[in-house]
């Protein structure tokens, strides 16, 4: 499997005893796997999407962080990257794609437009997708640089490793 002792130890809470026996919890191992193989669903509607493409291409190479397996089917994705402005006509599409993604799922709101409408304070533009879908990580910028998107992916990874629930299921846990 290529899974070394050091890898397992890097998952929080893992302990190594003498020899080759490792004790940990099943949650820790699962989260370790999830965090290192996020499959993003790109929802690119504007210039932020160009930066997202640059992030995936050779120069910035998101695959260094295990998140290069872009899937254009929400059924196969667990990270939604909303990059660009979302109009009132597009919001139901985005909501539907979010709903189609299997749990657990995380959402990155990339750039000013997705996060708050940006400069487009007009009749047609959603003033922040978090009014309609839960967002885990926001990226400021117009558009953000690829490094910012990588940073956001790393923050999602940290969140997964820490065992925190995605924003989308927190309301389920409360009740």
């Amino acid at each position: 499997m290529g899974l070394t002792n050091t890898d397992i130890q890097s998952a929080q809470g893992a302990e190594q005893t003498d020899g080759n026996i490792i004790t940990t919890t099943i949650d820790k191992v699962i989260n370790w796997g999830r965090k290192n193989s996020l499959w993003p669903m790109p929802f690119g509607t504007a210039c932020c999407a160009i930066e997202m493409m640059a992030t995936l291409a050779s120069k910035f190479d998101l695959s260094r962080f295990g998140s290069e397996a872009i899937r254009f089917s929400p059924r196969q994705s667990d990270l939604l990257i909303v990059s660009g402005r979302i109009s009132i006509k597009m919001m139901p599409v985005l909501k539907r794609i979010y709903d189609q993604m299997p749990d657990p799922k995380w959402v990155i709101s990339m750039g000013a437009c997705a996060s708050c409408g940006g400069v487009f304070d007009t009749y047609t533009l959603i003033q922040g997708v978090d009014q309609f879908i839960p967002v885990d990580v926001y990226i400021p910028g117009c558009p953000p640089r690829p490094e910012d998107l990588i940073d956001a992916v790393l923050q999602v990874q940290q969140k997964i490793a820490s065992g925190a629930s995605p924003k989308g299921v927190e309301h389920l846990l409360e009740t």
Partner: peptide, 24 residues
């Protein structure tokens, strides 16, 4: 019709209230 000059720039509440079920 939003480009008519008497249409308010920020709209008439369309961006906050719409029916997901109907549009889906």
């Amino acid at each position: 019709h939003p480009l008519q000059k008497d249409y308010p720039l920020r709209g008439r509440g369309e961006r906050e209230s719409f029916n997901f079920d109907k549009q889906n």
